[in-house]
């Protein structure tokens, strides 16, 4: 069953086509991700689905409800973490938990969640005293209070250190284990690759590709890289090995590109058959980032932490 259906979504800001005709579905039980550079339309899309922005065109159904019209019903079933929300400086952790709990008739026990997220000892702290990672955990905790069927996470790990980021990933995986659908946006390709069952690559307000991370990479047709060190080699013979497309040999190092499941085996067989001793054999498979670069034709800006959208 499709829990989210988006048909031909458009949202323009003046001349800027923030979202320019996006369609997709999200299925029960999956972690669905949107990746793309800053300003690609990720946040606009997610906020249209959440009912926080009004689409100019197109149709959105979330759990068979219209996010614009069924506001009160929908916010008992879905929950969100906004990109860059902060809370009142001088509200205490337990106070904001109680406040958000009061919105729902049967909320999850925030005390158990504080325990689970390692925030128990901070329950009496002001929110402003929490670290970035702790604030994000609190955001997820608040989003979980209604025991939602779908959780929307917008750039959940932006600005976090690597350890906190990995903790977030574990939390997101747990959401899936609990049977929730997760819809996330990120501009970290690695994050999408690790977490998402399916990924939509967005650029200039359009989806340029949508599939499982593995399929996206495979379909991209990007070559695998194999490198090794060898004293002497006949480059033209090496080119004849099945799957190999490009071979470079310089200063005793071979760097070659090619594809196919037998690529590495073919190369090693060739080297052994010709009694060539090789050292430091390494391979690098294409990843989602390579795929992204190929599809969008641009250098990915991982450093920028802000989505202008």
């Amino acid at each position: 069953m499709n829990v989210i259906e988006v048909r031909n979504l458009k949202k323009y800001y003046g001349d800027v086509k923030a979202v320019d005709g996006i369609s997709f579905e999200v299925n029960e039980g999956e972690i669905f991700g949107m990746v793309g550079p800053n300003g690609a339309g990720k946040t606009t899309t997610i906020e249209c689905i959440e009912g926080l922005r009004k689409p100019d065109e197109g149709e959105i159904r979330v759990l068979d409800l219209n996010p614009q019209k069924d506001r009160e019903k929908i916010y008992k079933l879905i929950s969100i973490q906004l990109q860059e929300t902060s809370y009142q400086d001088k509200i205490k952790v337990y106070e904001i938990c109680e406040f958000f709990s009061s919105f729902y008739s049967n909320p999850l026990d925030y005390k158990k969640l504080l325990d689970k997220f390692g925030l128990h000892e901070f329950r009496n702290s002001y929110v402003m005293k929490l670290s970035g990672g702790q604030k994000q955990k609190l955001s997820i905790l608040l989003a979980l209070l209604p025991d939602p069927r779908i959780v929307f996470l917008d750039e959940i790990t932006t600005g976090l250190d690597p350890k906190a980021r990995r903790e977030m990933w574990e939390m997101v995986k747990d959401l899936k284990k609990e049977g929730r659908v997760v819809f996330l946006t990120t501009h970290y390709m690695e994050e999408a690759e690790v977490l998402c069952d399916r990924v939509a690559i967005v650029d200039y307000g359009r989806i340029v590709a949508l599939d499982t991370p593995e399929e996206l990479v495979t379909k991209s047709g990007i070559d695998e890289m194999v490198s090794f060190e060898v004293d002497m080699i006949d480059v033209s013979k090496l080119r004849e090995v099945k799957g190999v497309s490009v071979v470079n040999f310089k200063d005793g190092e071979v760097v070659l590109y090619g594809k196919g499941g037998d690529l590495l085996k073919g190369i090693v067989d060739y080297l052994n058959a010709n009694r060539l001793t090789f050292r430091n054999l390494r391979t690098k498979k294409p990843n989602l980032e390579d795929t992204f670069l190929k599809l969008t034709g641009k250098k990915y800006e991982e450093e920028k932490d802000e989505d202008v959208n």
Partner: peptide
């Protein structure tokens, strides 16, 4: 509340 997007966050609750 608006600047910190607290109002926006609260809009996505009942």
């Amino acid at each position: 509340y608006r600047d910190k997007k607290i109002l926006k966050r609260l809009m996505a609750t009942p």
